[in-house]
Design a binder for these strands. Structure first.
Lengths: 338, 338
DNA sequence: TTTATTTACGAAAACGTTGTAGTATTTTTT
DNA sequence: AAAAAATACTACAACGTTTTCGTAAATAAA
């Protein structure tokens, strides 16, 4: 069974294709009675317009791409949830692409999208993206990008983040208040602005409380889990280990927990841990994980709303705008000795 | 800047559109030197074929839809990961739709897809889907569906699951071996076959060990978290509470943990807990969570491979086939008293 | 040499939709 | 009553591909 199209409806109703098309789109050019006839038959035959024909003709597609580093991660899956909720409301479709933190994959995906498959893109940068030519090229093709969380400052467009500096500052001050003297920072990337901002917050907190930052307490992590594990293990088994670590992302906190399990380091007694996280089981961990919780769902919704607003108005250029949502510090067992 | 198309390439090269098209698709009808000229210019001008035009003309779209109940859930996000990995390899695009366990949303999504936006669908049923007309209709429109995990037996097609019966049996036997006498089961749906299979495994284990099943130890949960919380709280605070619960899905185990925290019930001493789960932090919970771990990533890969294989061959009908992957029991602190 | 066959291209018709530019009617205005 | 305007439709050309069919020229077979 081939799906019904305008031609079939038109023939059945003894009308022209254009009349049927217009009737279905509720054009004022078509009389009430005809409209009703058309709509009735369309419903009866379960007519669904061919999206490819429509996209081709209108030169836009009610489809967006979401490009993220990974999906098995609560922050990103919640963000997608937010994006999808708005998309479903506004009748947009959502394509998913994963970069797995790989710059080359990111470039490839973006290149593919230049053909016009989507009207716009919502993305979070891969951690090893240092060059932004591919993004410039995409916007030059009139495909707007809205960034969330891992944003790119180089591109003039809308960006949605949380107050990462404040978050880093709050997390670190929380550790200071809880009597930590040698606070470490675990980063994931040199280039990612969220990571930088969080570190700046961390440094500012130390500075504010007259603590001299200790270069050797900053762990530069990568995408390699085993690598990270070893780096963290090394620093935690050094002569002068930190008494707290603020991790830029959840995954690193998990690794810290694992290393502590191996080294029999007690959290929070010997080491306090806090990180940016949206883990739904944070409160059930041993010990429960103190975290800066980002409004991931809302960030997704916000990014999607901005993009759809522009797409609906056929604006392919989105002016600079930085939406900063508030994250909240949830203090739990990993930083507080009961 | 409008993106380059065949017409522009043709004009620039003094060739016809068809020649350019054929050259780019490496047709034998075109001479080597012309091919090279075309390919060179295409690369130079960063030509990307318009996917809508191509899909319209070819009547197929190298795009699939993935329909799942939710995404903020390790099982599903890992499955998507698997699907996406194969899709990226084979140059397919992946649309995501979330039903949020809502039958009406599921129907709506499926109806939308009848227009031919996608070549095929990979899906996991919503927990309250009892009627399958919408799915029959979609396949009648020549859009194949491959099911994974929450499959629909009514539709003749390929299905990918784990050995849910075996899993339920193994989980329950594990509890029996660990001296549980009154084992409860927490289900999510009457209709979902995975839930039924898991419960059958549970009942079979009881039967095998001559334990009389206790109707009141079976908690029928729903999509309402507070509802589930109250039901579980009620059963755990009854006169004769179960000494173990096997939860059909991860989310219910989380709720059980939370109820136990409130009621000060000690896991595993007073209550042992095991569930189907892919939680990445299961080993870091308090207590660490015993689980039947499904190969979610592989399930996604498998489902995608089957679908793409058929789409590539223009086969819109997929014969019945049931791929059953093995899940593994990981015994941890929630069922074992150290 | 004549006739087949191959090679290398081009013209044109789809795919299903949308939007512009008509054209008969009917209705309103003057 | 004539002119203007509104109503309700249709024809047709796009949108950018792909593919079938056609056709010259070059090569091979007879």
């Amino acid at each position: 069974m081939d799906s019904t199209n305008l031609k079939m409806l038109a023939k059945e109703l003894n009308l022209s294709i254009s009349t049927v098309s217009k009737a279905l789109r509720d054009s004022h050019e078509i009389g009430e009675s005809t409209k009703n006839r058309v709509i009735a038959l369309a419903k009866k035959l379960n007519y669904q317009p061919n999206p490819h024909a429509s996209s081709l003709r209108k030169q836009k597609s009610k489809t967006i791409a979401v490009i993220i580093p990974e999906i098995a991660n609560n922050f990103f899956s919640l963000a997608i949830n937010g994006i999808e909720s708005i998309a479903q409301e506004r009748d947009y479709h959502v394509l998913i692409y994963l970069t797995h933190e790989d710059y080359n994959k990111e470039v490839n995906i973006i290149k593919h999208l230049q053909g016009g498959r989507v009207g716009g893109v919502i993305m979070s940068l891969s951690s090893d993206t240092k060059n932004f030519d591919h993004l410039h090229e995409l916007t030059a093709h009139n495909i707007p990008i809205v960034f969330f969380d891992r944003i790119c400052h180089e591109i003039e467009t809308a960006k949605v983040t949380t107050d990462d500096f404040q978050g880093g500052l709050a997390a670190t001050e929380h550790l200071i208040i809880n009597h930590c003297k040698n606070i470490g920072f675990a980063s994931i990337s040199d280039t990612l602005s969220i990571d930088n901002k969080r570190m700046q917050g961390y440094l500012e907190a130390l500075n504010k409380h007259n603590i001299k930052p200790n270069k050797s307490s900053i762990v530069k992590c990568t995408n390699s889990e085993t690598n990270n594990y070893n780096k963290i293990k090394k620093i935690l088994s050094s002569k002068n280990p930190p008494d707290a670590i603020f991790a830029s992302i959840e995954k690193l906190a998990i690794t810290i927990y694992e290393v502590c399990n191996e080294l029999k380091i007690k959290i929070p007694e010997q080491l306090k841990v806090i990180c940016f996280s949206n883990l739904s089981t944070a409160h059930l961990m041993k010990p429960s994980l103190s975290a800066i919780k980002q409004p991931a769902f809302e960030m997704g919704k916000e990014a999607a709303s901005i993009l759809f607003k522009h797409l609906d108005k056929n604006r392919t250029f989105i002016p600079n705008e930085h939406i900063i949502l508030k994250s909240t510090l949830v203090a739990r067992g990993s930083t507080i000795i009961k």
